[in-house]
Structure formats: structure tokens, C-alpha cells
């Protein structure tokens, strides 16, 4: 049937299969933004941003509300067309990829997960496998879906409808769907917002594991402690520009964070482990 459709005039209805990407070498740039300017509703949200996202690395985007973190993530995921500058994914401008090709190269976790119809949790996670339909790796679907659910601890309610879940459970199901997509570039917009302490740690451990397996992970975070503990590199955004970019131990300083957040902040080392801790300075 598919062969007939491809050969005939209907071929445009069944596009040819996109080719999956080659595994990335460690350190390879999987996404980059150059001199990026993005306007939303007439307002300049990003004003000359440049970032590189490398394979094997967790990059955290931090900054105050309205700094442009989500917009930058949207540009990196090819949702937004920049007014100026370019965004490249796997070395090619985002506009040069088709939607199915992009789906094999980057996965995106949106800030809030919604669903129009009450699909059961397992079906939602399985939707992440859609880009692989018709490829050899389609056979792995069951195993990948089961593992993604196990890793995000949603297996227990795999049969329940998505609409019956709590906010935190939904967030984990959405993450499981993103993991099941197995794209080398993983973009997560505030994955920890709705989660309890234990699951926040779980999600960021998963990010590190994806990076260790050779993927590039970009994660928007509000919790600077989490960013300091789990990110290889942090990009601090302020007013649509990158205020600082580097390893958290170098970037996070009292002066920079206090200035960026317009709130006195103290950065100190954990007395026992030496980890970077970030805490607001409170007036007693």
C-alpha cells in the first residue's frame, strides 16, 4: 500500500522517511544560536543572544522572570522564527529541516502539558515514538516506552487517563514522552516546576544521564541550587542578553547574581561537600 502511494501521484501525501542522525561525537555542537534577536508582539525579547549546546553536556538557562529563557528555548527548538540571527540544529539552520527530520534530532518538554482527549498515560508516552514509525528502531518502541516510564516513575499509573493525574504526575509523564523520543538534543522548559523535592532530583539526575550517554541537554531552571549541582554549564540571562556563560562554580558569584536578580544573593560552599549553594540574603 505504502509503495503504491509513494510511486503514484499520492506520493506527496506520504512523505519519504526522514533519515535519523548519526551519533554525535562528545563535545560536538548540536545546537547554536548566533546574534539572535527575537521579537514577540513588537517587543524585543532576545537581543543578540549567542549560545552553543554541546553533546555530552547539560546547559542550564537561568535568570529572572521575563529574561527570555523560554523564548531562547523556543528558538532553539525551532518554534520561533528569529527577527535576526540564526539558529542551527545539528549544523543546519532550523528552516532547512523538515518537521519529521527535526523530530529525530530534538525533543522538547513544554512548560505545561495539556491533552485534549483522555489518552491513557502509556499511550501519551508512546506518542514520543511517533518520529520513529516506519524505521528499524520502531521495534524498540515497547522497551523504550517501558523504560522511559520506569525512569520517570510513572509505570504505576500507566493505564490511568492523563486527565486524571496531578500536576506533578503529568509533568513526569510529559518528561517520559520526551525521553522516549530519543532525540540527541533534549530541550526542557522548567521540568521541575511542579515537582516535589525527590522528583526534582530525579529529573536532573536523568538530565545528567542523558548527557553521559552523549546527548545535549538544555534545561530552563529557576532553582539556582539545582543548576549549580547538576549543570555542566550555566547561561545567565538578563533582559534578553546573556549576562554570563560558563561552569556554575565560575559563573555564580554574589555580585553577578545579586545584580541580575535585583536581590541580594549569597553564594557559599557547602560546609561538608563543598558544593555550590545559592541562597537569598534575607533581612532579619
Amino acid at each position: 500500500m505504502r509503495g503504491v502511494l509513494r510511486g503514484g501521484r499520492l506520493s506527496r501525501l506520504v512523505p519519504s522517511r526522514p533519515v535519523p542522525p548519526e551519533p554525535a561525537a562528545p563535545g560536538e555542537v548540536l545546537a547554536e544560536a548566533e546574534d539572535l534577536r527575537v521579537r514577540l508582539a513588537g517587543r524585543l525579547i532576545l537581543d543578540g543572544v549567542g549560545v552553543h549546546v554541546r553533546a555530552g553536556e547539560v546547559l542550564a538557562l537561568v535568570g529572572p522572570n521575563g529574561a527570555g529563557k523560554s523564548t531562547l528555548l523556543g528558538a532553539l527548538s525551532a518554534d520561533l522564527t528569529p527577527a535576526e540571527g540564526t539558529v542551527r540544529i545539528h549544523g543546519r539552520p532550523t528552516t532547512a529541516w523538515s518537521a519529521p527530520e527535526l523530530a529525530l534530532r530534538r525533543s522538547v518538554l513544554p512548560q505545561s502539558a495539556s491533552l485534549s482527549f483522555p489518552f491513557p498515560v502509556e499511550d501519551v508516552v508512546r506518542m514520543g515514538r511517533a518520529p520513529w514509525a516506519g524505521t528499524e528502531r520502531e521495534d524498540e518502541d515497547d522497551a523504550v516506552v517501558a523504560e522511559a516510564m520506569a525512569r520517570t516513575e510513572v509505570t504505576a499509573f500507566a493505564g490511568r487517563p492523563f486527565s486524571a493525574l496531578s500536576g506533578g504526575e503529568r509533568a513526569r509523564v510529559a518528561l517520559a514522552r520526551v525521553l522516549a523520543q530519543q532525540a540527541p538534543l533534549v530541550l526542557l522548559d522548567e521540568p521541575t516546576a511542579a515537582l516535589d523535592l525527590r522528583h526534582q532530583e530525579l529529573v536532573l539526575r536523568l538530565c545528567r544521564e542523558r548527557a553521559a550517554a552523549g546527548d545535549a541537554v538544555v534545561v530552563v531552571l529557576h532553582d539556582l541550587g539545582l543548576a549549580a549541582a547538576y549543570a555542566h554549564r550555566v547561561a545567565v540571562l538578563r533582559g534578553g542578553r546573556v549576562a554570563a556563560d560558563g561552569p556554575p562554580s565560575e559563573v555564580f558569584s554574589d555580585a553577578l547574581l545579586s545584580e541580575v536578580y535585583d536581590q541580594p544573593v549569597e553564594v557559599l560552599a557547602h560546609p561538608r561537600t563543598g558544593e555550590v549553594l545559592v541562597t537569598p540574603r534575607r533581612v532579619p
Binding site: 518537521a99 519529521p100 527530520e101 513544554p110 482527549f117 511517533a130
Partner: peptide, 14 residues
């Protein structure tokens, strides 16, 4: 089915 996730997530899935 994918469109049930919303337009952007559906696009992210190809």
C-alpha cells in the same frame, strides 16, 4: 493523536 498534545508538541514530534 499527536495533535491532542497541542500544536507545538505535535510539531516537535514531526
Amino acid at each position: 493523536d499527536l495533535l491532542a498534545l497541542g500544536e507545538r508538541p505535535a510539531r516537535h514530534l514531526g
